[in-house]
Amino acid sequence: MPLDEDKYPAETGRRRFVKGVVGSAALSSIGVGGAAAVDATTDAAGEGGGTTEFVAVENTDGPAPRGMPIIPITIEGGELRGVWPEYDPEAGVAIARDFGGSGIDYSSAWFQYCGMQTAAGLYPQVEQDNTLRSSPGSYAWQSDVEAGAPLTVDMFSDYQEWGNGIGTAGLGKPASANWRSEGDVKTIPVQLIRSVEIEKMANGEGKYSSLPSDVQQFISAATEEGFIAWMNKCTHFCCVPGFKTLAGSANFGAANRIYCQCHQSVYNPFSPVKKQFVALPRPPRTE
């Protein structure tokens, strides 16, 4: 399996932290210069870096080196939530081994790229709200939902017909959200879709019967009622892409795909793949 490298250093100068979770002094070595060193590190001494296998929405075009990591979803009381596994002090990450019987280990290291390894919500020991909360702006329908309000199943009742004039109507209804980002901390941006295609994928129907068995089993466990979610950070230069957010995406064959307008990277939310990359280690946590 090819190893995908993270091309972008950790963010510098624009971080926000929870007091007592991440200290600025602890991050001083993870600037642009330090990032080159940690990017090559494969043994992070308990800080969660190193070679990581993950499941992603596939990158199909453009300069992005790999897909964006999928966030397993659960529904509780009608609210959509991202799954956060238990902390394993020996591994140094939050991890759910053999997730859903797939043979794939789902861990917090999946999201340690683009400087997100400094996000308080991605520290495995930190308690944060796993509810997917509305982040209006990308889709007109979300303007009627208060920013920060939980996204609920009933908001997607028209998912089999929904369209906004971009690409094919009825392919799925998307939303933008934040996850594990409550308080004055770095935002973890998420995008999700509810789609009949995801229902078929979870059941291994039709063209999805050809998915590798471990990936199909993971998707079956990681999706619910047709919902799929991913951390919405382009793996090229860390921009925030969008599914059906830009009419011009049709010019790049991406009207029914996730499109990053910065450098024209394209991702297919209906094509999950298992890949590897070098997760950037987290800076030490200070109390």
Results as ranks from 00 to 15, higher is better:
residue 38 V to N: 11
residue 169 A to V: 11
residue 157 S to Y: 05
residue 82 G to L: 03
residue 169 A to R: 14
residue 133 R to F: 04
residue 71 I to G: 05
residue 198 I to W: 07
residue 107 S to Q: 10
residue 264 Q to E: 13
residue 24 S to N: 08
residue 46 G to K: 03
residue 218 F to G: 02
residue 233 K to I: 12
residue 208 Y to G: 02
residue 124 P to D: 02
residue 211 L to F: 06
residue 159 Y to N: 12
residue 153 V to R: 02
residue 152 T to L: 01
residue 228 I to Y: 09
residue 112 Q to I: 09
residue 71 I to P: 03
residue 76 E to F: 02
residue 190 V to F: 02
residue 35 A to K: 00
residue 35 A to G: 15
residue 100 G to I: 06
residue 87 Y to W: 15
residue 231 M to T: 13
residue 59 N to R: 13
residue 234 C to E: 02
residue 213 S to M: 13
residue 267 Y to L: 12
residue 139 Y to C: 04
residue 47 E to R: 15
residue 103 G to Y: 06
residue 166 I to H: 08
residue 102 S to T: 04
residue 173 K to L: 04
residue 199 E to C: 06
residue 174 P to K: 01
residue 91 A to S: 09
residue 275 K to H: 14
residue 182 E to S: 12
residue 119 A to M: 00
residue 40 A to R: 15
residue 178 N to A: 13
residue 266 V to S: 05
residue 202 A to I: 08
residue 59 N to P: 11
residue 158 D to N: 10
residue 218 F to S: 03
residue 172 G to L: 09
residue 218 F to Y: 12
residue 47 E to T: 15
residue 130 N to E: 15
residue 181 S to Y: 03
residue 77 G to V: 10
residue 16 R to S: 13
residue 170 G to C: 08
residue 61 D to Y: 12
residue 106 Y to A: 08
residue 50 G to R: 04
residue 238 C to S: 13
residue 169 A to Y: 09
residue 119 A to L: 00
residue 53 E to T: 15
residue 170 G to D: 06
residue 282 R to S: 11
residue 234 C to K: 10
residue 177 A to G: 07
residue 56 A to Q: 04
residue 165 G to P: 13
residue 213 S to L: 13
residue 166 I to D: 01
residue 255 A to Y: 06
